[in-house]
Nucleic acid binder design. Structure first.
Lengths: 156, 156
DNA sequence: GCTGAAACCACTTGCTC
DNA sequence: GAGCAAGTGGTTTCAGC
């Protein structure tokens, strides 16, 4: 893998391969090969090229957190003191495993995070005992996600 | 895959397997087998059980949207008219491919979405010509993500 | 719940066009 | 530059314990 290239050329075959594998990373390459009409080796060659271009970043197993008891998802907008730099706050947020995403945003807040907790009590604990304790965090606004109704990657 | 079970028992071996595969879904099962000290067939058996329990939902190839020119990510809070039901709005949002996530949230908005666009012009177009045109959408608030600094799944 | 063998598949290499 | 065929080693199934 090199540094990402902003000028990657993707043809229709690449798109078909990626569409299959974005749905199921362990789908047999030979199945894809048969459905497209080229050899498995050719698919491999293309995948290596896509990885080298930086388009293909990797693959992940997806687990359902509800089955492990994580049923409370929330977004939290964080206000930082002027003196607190964003990277220092992010470093602290990284240490909290319940924090799944962290964005440096325009608008009201300095930071918008997504967190996943077991229940409301757990959420309250993370909020009061972890996030609010970070130096420079002045105020937070919490939005609980009652249901996640869409979750996908971009369409290629 | 059956209906998700809230009482799944996961032992240390399952956790090790999942931790490997959540990082790289195509990691050779035999490598994992050797590092844990059981046979590849045993790993496979455990994976099938984890899938049947609903914990393991699937696997995905991860692509880097920046390489395809998608550089502008934003969160949008959407206010719905009282008369507009959430499911009907979600149905419309599903048709907009730039919408990657959609949450039914407590707090100010009815809906919070994450969208990914090529640039600010593209974002403006999706906002004005797609989202604002949905029946029942009264007002929106946009927060552009200048940088996504954390992106991960829950730790098991 | 695990193992080992057999069948199938992934991935590499060397070649052809 | 892109494809194929064959070879090595990994994946997956299944009988057996």
């Amino acid at each position: 893998m090199k540094s990402p290239n902003q000028n990657v050329k993707i043809d229709g075959i690449d798109k078909k391969i990626l569409r299959f594998l974005m749905e199921d990373a362990r789908k047999p390459v030979l199945e894809i090969a048969r459905s497209i009409g080229i050899s498995g080796a050719a698919i491999h060659q293309r995948l290596r090229k896509l990885e080298a271009s930086g388009l293909l970043v990797g693959s992940k197993f997806v687990i359902n957190p509800k089955v492990m008891g994580y049923t409370t998802m929330a977004y939290i907008g964080i206000y930082l003191d002027k003196a607190m730099s964003n990277p220092r706050a992010v470093k602290q947020l990284e240490k909290i495993p319940e924090v799944l995403e962290c964005h440096y945003t325009t608008g009201n807040w300095s930071i918008l995070i997504k967190i996943l907790c077991m229940d409301n009590e757990h959420l309250m604990h993370v909020l009061n005992k972890e996030i609010q304790q970070i130096e420079g965090v002045s105020r937070t606004e919490t939005f609980i996600s009652l249901a996640q109704q869409i979750d996908r990657q971009i369409t290629i």
